[in-house]
Design a protein around this nucleic acid. Structure first.
Lengths: 139, 139
DNA sequence: CTTTCTGCAAACGATTTGCAGCAGC
DNA sequence: GCTGCTGCAAATCGTTTGCAGAAAG
C-alpha cells in the first residue's frame, strides 16, 4: 500500500483517501471488478471521482483496465502488484475470474512473440490470454 | 459467400444486399475493421443499418465482434470461415493485425483449458490471445 | 496560499431504437 | 399482402468534463 502511495506521488499526484479507497476495493477482490462494484464497496465515493481516479491510478501503473465484451469496463491492480495471471470470462453472465498462468503456456507465448517480432517487426510488451466459455453456474 | 447466405437464412433472416455488402467489406480486409471503415468501403450503407446488421450477422455466426482498449469496436468474419488466428494490437495507435496461431501455442492453451476445467468447473469454448505492443510504425 | 481534488450536473459519443416507408418472399 | 428491412432522427447510457468549493502540502 505504501508502494501504491509512492507510485502515485511519483507521478506528481497526491495519494488521497479516495484514491486509496479505490485501491482497497480492488485489493479486496480476487477478480477484476466494475465501477459499480467499487461504489458498492466504498459508497462514500462519488461516481465521477472513481472514473477520474482510476485514470490517475492507471497512469501511476497501479491499476489496469480490462475490456471484455460485456457492457462495463472492469479494473484490477497492476500485475506487478498481484502476479501475472489470465482471465476466465463467462459468455453467458459476463463474470470474470482470475486464473494463474501455467508455466508451459507462458513459455509458448514468449516463443511465439519472438518469432512474430522477427517476421513482422511487432514489439510485444504484454500479452493477454482469455478463456471464453461458461462458468460453473451457467454451464 | 453462399455459405454466408445460408447461415443467415438458417436463422430466419434474409441475406439482403446490405448484409452481403458488409460481409464483402470484412472479407476484403486482412484484419478486423471498424464500423467507420466498413462505411468507407461501402458508402451506400446507412450507419444504423451497419450496426443492426452486424448484430444479425453475429447471431448467424458469420461475424465476430472484437473489443480492444481503443474507442471503437472492430469486426471480422467468423473463424470457421477464415481460420483460427490471434491479434497483434498496437498500444500506441490502436491498429490490429491478424497473426496465425503457432501450433505449439495452441497445444499449450488446450492443455491449460483442460486443467482449468478440472480444477474450477469452467467450460472453455474459445480462447483469445492478444499480443500488445508497438507496431513497426510506432516502435 | 497555491495547487490539486472533489462532487455535482451537464456534455459527449458510440451504439441502439422508434417509426414510417420500402423490399423480399 | 405480409413480414422483415431500411434510413432517418431521436434516445440511451457508460463515461468524460466544466466549474466552484474543499483539502493537501
Amino acid at each position: 500500500m505504501t508502494e501504491v502511495s509512492e507510485r502515485i506521488s511519483r507521478t506528481g499526484q497526491r495519494p488521497t483517501r479516495n484514491r486509496l479507497a479505490i485501491v482497497e476495493a480492488l485489493h479486496a477482490s480476487p477478480r477484476p471488478i466494475t465501477i459499480h462494484e467499487i461504489l458498492e464497496a466504498q459508497p462514500q465515493l462519488a461516481q465521477s471521482s472513481v472514473y477520474r481516479n482510476l485514470v490517475v491510478l492507471e497512469q501511476a501503473r497501479t491499476v489496469r483496465r480490462i475490456v471484455t465484451d460485456h457492457e462495463f469496463a472492469r479494473y484490477e491492480l497492476a500485475e506487478d502488484l498481484t502476479g501475472h495471471h489470465h482471465h476466465l470470462i463467462c459468455v453467458e453472465c459476463g463474470a470474470v475470474e482470475d486464473v494463474a498462468a501455467p508455466a508451459g503456456l507462458e513459455r509458448s507465448v514468449h516463443n511465439a512473440a519472438e518469432q512474430i517480432a522477427r517476421s513482422t517487426g511487432f514489439r510485444t510488451e504484454h500479452h493477454r490470454i482469455d478463456l471464453l466459455g461458461r462458468c460453473k453456474q451457467c454451464a
